[in-house]
């Protein structure tokens, strides 16, 4: 057998749906514009989809975290997220929901430390979706990983599977939920990439808004499939790290300066 062909075949076995993955990988990492001529795109990307049309994979929402701009001690993204989704403090922080949290990472050798937010990484191949026994954990066509709480039975497999510790389980009854952020006891939840804002066409998230308001602009939300979006341009120019890139999840959240 032709060795080249064999390699291709074994590659395809290891990586199902490899064509799509390669396509998205190219779009997300290299971000080469899919153009037939300069300025003429093979597809057009509209950020404000028609309200009565479902989301498509023409867009892939993502977030860029510039750790060099993320200020140590600033907590505005977390506060904004808590307010946006009415995540309340039960007084028992061990079980409080965290959709986004601030971390300080330190290099043991040099002592260099960095501050950054951690949240659902909106993987292209989300382990939470793989393990969900009911199909409640799912990825939307536009790359946002969500929980269908109507189907979630609260088994918490996804919490075990997530390498980023991104999901929270709601242990207690919740009152005064936001209309746009229904949450309830017995379900798992995590960052929705402000899906209600995305669907509204806001083009940003609560955390990114708060970060910009604080003057840091460490969080850039945008379409990874659109080569002209700010996030794509910056990724193309400066590159970025995926946390636990070794897992091959192709995360939608990328970190610069790590």
């Amino acid at each position: 057998m032709n060795p080249e062909k064999m390699t291709q075949e074994s590659g395809a076995q290891e990586q199902p749906n490899s064509n799509r993955r390669q396509f998205l990988g190219t779009a997300a990492a290299a971000l080469g514009g899919l153009s037939i001529a300069p300025g003429v795109l093979l597809y057009s990307v509209s950020h404000a989809k028609p309200a009565d049309q479902p989301v498509t994979d023409a867009v892939r929402w993502g977030m860029l975290v510039d750790t060099s701009k993320c200020e140590d001690g600033c907590n505005d993204c977390v506060t904004a997220c808590n307010e946006e989704h009415a995540l309340t403090d039960t007084g028992r922080p061990e079980t409080d929901a965290q959709w986004i949290r601030k971390l300080t990472v330190k290099d043991r050798l040099s002592g260099n430390s960095k501050s950054m937010p951690m949240m659902c990484q909106h993987c292209e191949h989300p382990p939470c979706v793989d393990v969900c026994p009911t199909g409640a954990s799912f990825k939307r066509a536009d790359g946002i990983v969500l929980v269908d709480k109507h189907i979630c039975i609260g088994c918490r497999y996804c919490m075990m599977a997530c390498p980023y510790k991104a999901r929270s389980f709601i242990h207690e009854e919740i009152k005064d939920q936001k209309v746009e952020a229904p949450r309830g006891k017995g379900c798992v939840e995590s960052c929705t990439l402000c899906v209600h804002k995305v669907d509204r066409g806001d083009g940003t998230t609560a955390c990114a808004e708060a970060c910009a308001k604080a003057g840091h602009r460490a969080l850039i939300f945008g379409d990874l499939n659109d080569p002209n979006s700010e996030i794509s341009q910056r990724l193309k120019k400066f590159g970025a790290t995926q946390i636990r890139a070794d897992l091959g999840l192709n995360t939608g959240v990328r970190y610069q300066g790590l």
């Binding site: 907590n75 977390v78 506060t79 808590n82 995540l87 403090d89 922080p93 061990e94 409080d96 965290q98 949290r101 601030k102 971390l103 300080t104 990472v105 330190k106 290099d107 043991r108 790590l258």
Partner: peptide
């Protein structure tokens, strides 16, 4: 909110 945690890379 429980937001700061000690991580080491």
């Amino acid at each position: 909110h429980a937001s700061f945690k000690n991580f080491d890379v």
